[in-house]
Amino acid sequence: MLRLPRFGIVTPTRVEDAVAALATPGARVVAGGTDLLPNLKHRLDAPPVLVSLARLPLGHVTRDGASIVIGAGVTLAALAEHPLIAAEMPSLARAAGLVASPILRNLGTLGGNLCLDTRCRYVNQTEGWREALGRCLKSGGDRCHVVPGGQTCVAALSSDCAPVLVSLDAEVVLHGPAGRRVVPLEALYRADGVAHLTRAPDELLVEVRVPVAPGPRLAAYVKWTVRKSIDFPLISVALRFDLDAEGVDGRIVGASIVAGALASTPRRVRKTEALHGLRLADPATADAVARLAGAQLKPLDNVPYDAVYRRRMIPVHVRRAVAALAAGAS
């Protein structure tokens, strides 16, 4: 039996009240609770108070000019099934629909998925397990069990939506005591598994803005897990190809490849210009994309499964995903 530590709770109905409540030192935000509550049950933190977003009006999905605006409180189930998302950004719908399991997607929210705590095989364990091995950087100790001698925590961001939304150039709206600021989603993350969010402790992620594709585009999300549901990704890659014409015969004029589950930030594959001019209908394109991703994406032993195996499987899954896009079955 895993029980929560003691804490107080506030359940505000206005964003301003939630932000004010976050002024309490150590206060934590809880949206769906599917990430925070298991972590608290494992004693990874002991906040004095939780600020629940359950009653905030953050459940909107609307079109605003050339962007789709998604409230941070939209559940992953609602996101996966929303007709506007399915039509305009299928890779996001796909990623949201692959998070955990149906019952968890009914609770988990988009904002929560983007603010997911980083995970590591040496951290996300019961307290006794962690103590037995010795505390690591992320659990208050001074060593890293993944990278011997490492001084920076390499716990991984396991969000399925984050790599996809980075690949789609999304922005997030943060609401703090001084008002709202808009930052690229990519800038929400930093390379430190202990403190991987640039969100201030008294800021709330309230909204996600995603630009609609200005021209023809094909996009996909690759997720590989041990079991077909529930598990966090072992491989997580978002693919986006902007084309000069509709369909798989269009030539690539812009490409974005972003991987999750490697480090505390989504990782962009560089030099995607090398793919420009290729056609998805050409079988060699899948190989080119797989080679490019495989050469740059290097898993560590921070999440379950052997890192070497995960590394070798990245090009395999990327190649399959591009081939599926080309076959019209994303």
Binding site: L2, V30, T34, L37, S52, I103
Partner: peptide
Amino acid sequence: KQGCDKGDCGACTVQLDGRAVPSCLVLAAT
């Protein structure tokens, strides 16, 4: 039923406003 207590097993599934959710991860206050 109380199973894994962390949302993995689904033994505690109830319906909240008609939707199936793991009650071990729902704060009572909400």
